[in-house]
């Protein structure tokens, strides 16, 4: 994924930032992830599937990813990934139309 790419978000664990069914444009990483970044990464438990999560901790060269939604956080085992697993950063939601906007 050398350039921007588009993903369909499935699931509700990243609400309110991302909702189930959102279409999102992602940019490839331009720098190493930081705590608080939203990222699309290869799920280490189910490669090559992608997950969209938020970086909650950076330890050396590993990144701990977790969910935003408190309701769902309990049901997702945080994933620890390395920078190479991070495929991009969601930046723009382009569908549904009434929710077009930057993703944070």
């Amino acid at each position: 994924m050398a350039g921007p790419f588009r993903v369909l978000v499935q699931g509700r664990s990243m609400e309110p930032a991302l909702r189930d069914g959102d279409w999102v444009v992602c940019l490839p990483p331009r720098r190493l992830p930081r705590s608080g970044d939203l990222v699309v990464a290869v799920d280490p438990y189910n490669a090559p599937d992608l997950i969209v999560k938020r970086v909650v901790a950076v330890t050396g060269e590993t990144y701990r990813l977790s969910s935003d939604s408190v309701e769902h956080r309990e049901h997702f085992a945080d994933r620890v990934v390395i920078a190479r697993d991070v495929r991009g950063t969601p930046v723009l939601r382009y569908a549904p139309l009434h929710r077009i906007g930057l993703v944070r």
Partner: peptide
Amino acid sequence: LLAPRLVARAHCDVPCGI
């Protein structure tokens, strides 16, 4: 044309209830 070809999962590991 605009539909994403990739899926990024924001699911839980287990079925979760509200």
